[in-house]
Deep mutational scan, measured.
Amino acid sequence: VLKALERTRQLDIPDEKTMPVLMKLLEEAGGNWSYIKLDNYTALVDAIYSVED
C-alpha cells in the first residue's frame, strides 16, 4: 500500500482519492497485487483518473 501511495503522491494525487480506488481494484483483483503493480501502478493511476472524469 505504501508504494502505491508513494507513486500517486508523485503525481499530486491525495491519499483520500487513492485509497478508495485502490481498495476497489484490490477487491476486483481478488487481492492480487500483480495487476495493480504493473508498469509502476499504471492501472491504479488510470483508475483514479477515470473516476475523476
Rank of each mutant, 00 (worst) to 15 (best):
V1S: 04
L2K: 13
K3S: 11
A4M: 03
A4T: 04
L5W: 00
L5E: 02
L5K: 02
E6L: 10
R7K: 06
R7E: 04
T8Q: 02
T8E: 02
T8L: 09
T8V: 05
T8G: 02
T8F: 07
R9H: 03
R9P: 02
R9I: 02
R9T: 05
Q10V: 07
Q10D: 09
L11K: 04
L11P: 01
L11V: 03
D12G: 15
I13E: 02
I13H: 02
D15N: 04
D15S: 04
D15I: 04
E16I: 09
K17L: 12
K17N: 06
K17H: 08
K17Y: 08
T18D: 03
T18A: 15
T18H: 03
T18G: 02
M19E: 02
M19H: 05
M19L: 14
M19K: 05
M19N: 02
P20R: 12
P20I: 11
P20N: 08
P20Q: 11
V21F: 06
V21I: 13
L22Y: 00
L22P: 00
M23G: 03
M23F: 10
K24P: 00
K24H: 08
K24T: 07
K24A: 10
K24Q: 09
L25N: 00
L25E: 00
L25T: 01
L26P: 00
L26D: 01
L26F: 05
E27P: 00
E27H: 12
E27D: 11
E27Q: 12
E28P: 01
A29N: 14
A29Y: 15
A29P: 02
G31A: 06
N32W: 05
N32G: 06
N32T: 06
W33I: 04
S34T: 15
Y35H: 11
K37F: 11
L38A: 15
L38R: 14
D39W: 08
D39P: 03
D39N: 15
N40G: 07
N40A: 06
Y41A: 00
T42I: 12
T42S: 15
A43N: 09
A43M: 15
V45E: 01
D46Y: 11
D46W: 10
A47Y: 06
I48A: 03
I48S: 01
Y49T: 09
Y49E: 07
Y49C: 10
Y49L: 14
S50I: 10
V51C: 10
V51Y: 14
E52F: 13
E52S: 13
D53I: 13
D53F: 14
